[in-house]
Design a protein around this nucleic acid. Structure first.
Lengths: 182, 182
DNA sequence: TCTATATATGTAAAAATTGACATATTCGGC
DNA sequence: GCCGAATATGTCAATTTTTACATATATAGA
């Protein structure tokens, strides 16, 4: 999956691994994340497979050499083929916190309650972070080609993230109320 | 993570890999899933690590030998230690469908619309499935030790799954309306 | 100028997960 | 009694993701 995210962002212009890491952290983080180690190694592999081209930017002399990646035609074709594939089933949803709740029946009530309250706190923080996101300047500073349409879709996925967090917080409230009655 | 789910279910009584696969499919599937291949191999590893004990049930003569796993004290301790660990950050949320939407800005509007409508259909089906779940007979047929409290927690996670699907469907509706205006 | 911190770029091993292959048994219907 | 489908159990290779290790530059402040 990460491959398609990288291809997707490279549509808008050439970027380095670090650029991609930053962009992912500030945009897809509510539905996908990746460590820099995976981003760098995936880019190498994509380069070897011809999906992207790279060139080392040595302009600065002494500076750290930055490897700038550009989307190739093959890469663009791969992305479009993937987007065009009809999806037949929903991807599985995984949530480690829910596993913990599921098996909390034998745990101490107060321990569960403080875990739930902490979770609520963390989800509230996350929701607050989403409110500070601005899809308009997501790719700011890059020689990119982003349309109104693109940023509209981005905003809608961000909205999804917000609604997810809102639902989660509400569920945690219900959960806390219920555990208190036990 | 799968390890803790297996330990969790084995708390309630001995089970085979297949039993565990079935139980997972009908209970944790809205927040975790696993293929049988992973379940069998993880059980082997847990056996080697002493978290579970296994014995082959040859009672039926000709029958396929079923390997029945039982939780050991070490396994119980491992599970309880994990449940007791304070969580400091939220697990990442991943959703491949959202990646597709995010990069749909350059796609044909009608193609996007039919994908969104299909997704809505799939989520509606999933929600309908959840309504047929009965946490009470989740472990039916097993010599298990399930308390009222356990099934209460199970019901609450199922409720979370339903609220998630409801939120998702509502978002898809908004999304469809918005794409239609483009 | 030293120094701590953030920025930036990678490699490599380990663990988790997925997907493909393989096979034996049970059960219901014909 | 045969056959197809569902049940049941596994292995193995490939891929993906995580975690740990490593290192170099830039920048801001003491």
């Amino acid at each position: 999956m990460l491959k398609y995210i990288l291809l997707g962002f490279l549509q808008y212009g050439p970027m380095t691994g670090y650029d991609l890491k930053r962009v992912i952290d500030f945009s897809t983080m509510h539905f996908w994340h990746a460590y820099h180690s995976q981003i760098y190694s995936t880019l190498r592999k994509m380069d070897a497979d011809g999906l992207v081209a790279s060139e080392t930017d040595d302009s600065g002399g002494d500076k750290l050499s930055r490897r700038v990646y550009t989307l190739t035609e093959a890469g663009e074709a791969t992305l479009n083929a993937w987007l065009g594939e009809p999806m037949t089933e929903l991807p599985a949803h995984k949530d480690e916190s829910m596993v913990r709740v599921f098996f909390s029946g034998r745990r101490d009530k107060d321990a569960v309650l403080s875990e739930l309250r902490l979770q609520r706190e963390l989800h509230q923080q996350r929701l607050a972070t989403y409110h500070t996101f601005d899809v308009e300047d997501l790719l700011e500073g890059h020689p990119v080609d982003v349309s109104q349409q693109d940023s509209g879709y981005w905003a809608m996925t961000l909205r999804h993230g917000m609604e997810y967090e809102t639902m989660y917080i509400r569920w945690l409230e219900e959960m806390i109320d219920w555990v208190e009655t036990l």
